[in-house]
Amino acid sequence: MKRVFLFLPLVVALAVGIFLFAGLGKDPTKLDSALIGKPVPEFSLENLADPELTMDTSVFKGEVSLLNVWAEWCPSCWDEHEYLMHLARDKGVRIVGLNYKDQRENAFRFLNRLGNPYETIIFDPEGKLGFDLGVYGAPETYVISADGIVLHRHVGVVNEQVWQQELLPIVNEARGES
């Protein structure tokens, strides 16, 4: 056996070490959406405010929007709501709401208390569109392009840092293209 071979374990260990080091501080539970680069799944659901109004993917056409998945029962949704208000009011961001597995009364109570940042709200009491989108826990926020393509998903609360570092660059890029 040549001595060179005795260095093999060291090399393997170093290689493993690099990957372990790279994995540090990353959140292994964070998942990218499977729909990125694909159109928002077809749906036909009621509007939250107006049950007579049926909504579909055309709601995303024409302008870059955020799709925010929320529910009254979701504690983190209460936390992020103020920042969503700020985005809609002060930054002029178009936000479409997806009221997920919720009840109408509760949703209204929530909006009456905290205000309504949404341009329009899709009502999805059974979580159908949520399931098609691959939502696994509210709140989730998607960036949707002007032609209805999913560009990005953020799972968890949206705040200043998430907006500035994660969402805004994607929104800007999408706006530039269209």
Partner: peptide
């Protein structure tokens, strides 16, 4: 631990 011991191994293990 690993680099130290495996380096020692690489240089000192009998061939």
């Amino acid at each position: 631990t690993v680099v130290g011991s495996l380096a020692l191994y690489a240089f000192r293990a009998p061939v």
